[in-house]
């Protein structure tokens, strides 16, 4: 199993958020989690990425034969996990290009691969940015600083395409995107899909899943997955909402 979440219960500040959650993802699969506001979708994404604000009450997560809880945040990233943030953080003064260069080399180092030099990285970045319709001038700016909502999401996908993760978690990547930006972002995601990587897509709406076809759709309510199935569940939710699952 590529990612195995078993009986996971998590709380934050005395509030139980995830309750005995189970989820399995195999290599090459695209999974979508849909759920109403406050159901715990972003908590799951943050726990997977290693955010330290949460208390793990019970359960385990295995990722590529590693006990995920043995890995800190950066080790998870270096092992191939990537979280596209719902609200990407603005970091004034940290330039995008050296930051991404450093990020890719930290992963290569862990994988005992040769580090990528400045020139090769610049070419790679330029080419990936061009695929996503990102202006080269944007790469001279600070991380997410002064970006519009759409630019931030596009920039998350740019990072994902540079880091080429084994498991990408997209936390409401569609929020704040107009239809053109949504198409560019989802095209970027689809180009990255291979038989060797997996995606976990968190969304409220079916629209995103029209562009990135999931193999499985899960409904998450009140910290647990209450129903799993195929794309038809997304259509069902679009038609009837989440009420019937609660």
């Amino acid at each position: 199993m590529f990612l195995e979440i078993k009986d996971l219960s998590v709380k934050i500040e005395n509030k139980n958020i995830l309750k005995s959650l189970n989820l399995n993802i195999n290599k090459g699969e695209v999974h979508a989690i849909m759920g109403p506001n406050g159901s715990g979708k972003s908590t799951l994404a943050n726990v997977l990425a290693g955010k330290e604000d949460y208390e793990i009450l019970n359960g385990r997560i295995n990722f590529k034969d590693n006990n995920l809880f043995d890995l800190n945040i950066e080790e998870r990233a270096q092992e191939g996990m990537f979280l596209a943030f719902q609200y990407p953080v603005e970091i004034p003064g940290v330039n995008i290009t050296p930051f991404l260069h450093s990020a890719i080399n930290s992963k290569r180092k862990r994988m005992s691969e040769e580090e990528i030099d400045n020139l090769s990285f610049a070419k790679l970045l330029k080419s990936k940015a061009s695929d996503l319709g990102i202006n080269i001038d944007m790469l001279k700016r600070s991380v997410n600083t002064g970006f519009s909502g759409g630019e931030k999401k596009r920039y998350e996908i740019l990072q994902m395409s540079i880091l080429n993760p084994d498991l990408a978690i997209l936390d409401e990547t569609d929020s704040g995107l107009d239809i053109d930006a949504l198409k560019i972002v989802t095209d970027g995601v689809n180009k990255l899909k291979t038989k060797d990587n997996s995606f976990l897509i968190i969304t409220h709406y079916q629209k995103l899943l029209d562009y990135i076809k999931p193999d499985y759709v899960h409904v998450m309510v009140n910290g647990s997955i209450v129903k799993s199935g195929g794309y038809e569940i997304a259509a069902e939710i679009e038609k009837d909402g989440f009420q019937k699952f609660q």
Partner: peptide, 24 residues
């Protein structure tokens, strides 16, 4: 958290944020 989630160590992330604080 954001920087670490891209593979940067906590110390490296702290240092880069301190440097960026006075970058201007």
């Amino acid at each position: 958290f954001y920087l670490r989630s891209r593979g940067m160590s906590k110390i490296a992330a702290t240092k880069i944020l301190i440097s960026s604080f006075i970058n201007e």
